[in-house]
């Protein structure tokens, strides 16, 4: 957060839990997804919906702005979350498990007999 003090000095003495790297990445995905969701929702709602009512077209009976913003937007977010859940997010043990090493060479200080390779 403070650009004048990079993380390097203290992370030498204190090793971060290897699972947190993945967890941090997934939290950023959550934030990015929310921003994308907002832009889609806002763009279609007020971009298309801001026209005079006479110019609206209707898709499945619903006004076009609403159809794109809320119906397609919702279906799109559903598909994205299913893809995320199936293919992107990483499975990991949640209990503290000293034998879990996604990157075994970096953790030579702990007993690493049982990595995911075994």
């Amino acid at each position: 957060m403070r650009p004048d003090t990079p993380n390097a000095p203290q992370s030498d003495e204190h090793k971060q839990d290897p699972r947190f790297k993945t967890a941090h990445k997934e939290a950023w995905i959550g934030l990015a997804l929310a921003i994308f969701n907002f832009i889609w929702w806002f763009g279609f709602a007020y971009g298309l919906g801001g026209r005079p009512v006479e110019e609206y077209t209707y898709i499945l009976g619903l006004p076009d702005w609403f159809f794109w913003s809320c119906v397609v937007g919702f279906i799109l977010m559903s598909i994205i979350t299913v893809v995320l859940a199936k293919f992107v997010l990483t499975d990991m043990p949640l209990d503290d498990d000293p034998t879990y090493h996604p990157n075994p060479p970096n953790f030579s200080d702990k007993p690493a007999q049982k990595g995911p390779k075994s």
Binding site: R19, A23, H24, E26, A27, G30, M92, D96
Partner: peptide, 9 residues
């Protein structure tokens, strides 16, 4: 997603 695995751990 935001509280996510770090919070669970």
């Amino acid at each position: 997603l935001v509280l996510g695995k770090k919070f669970a751990i």
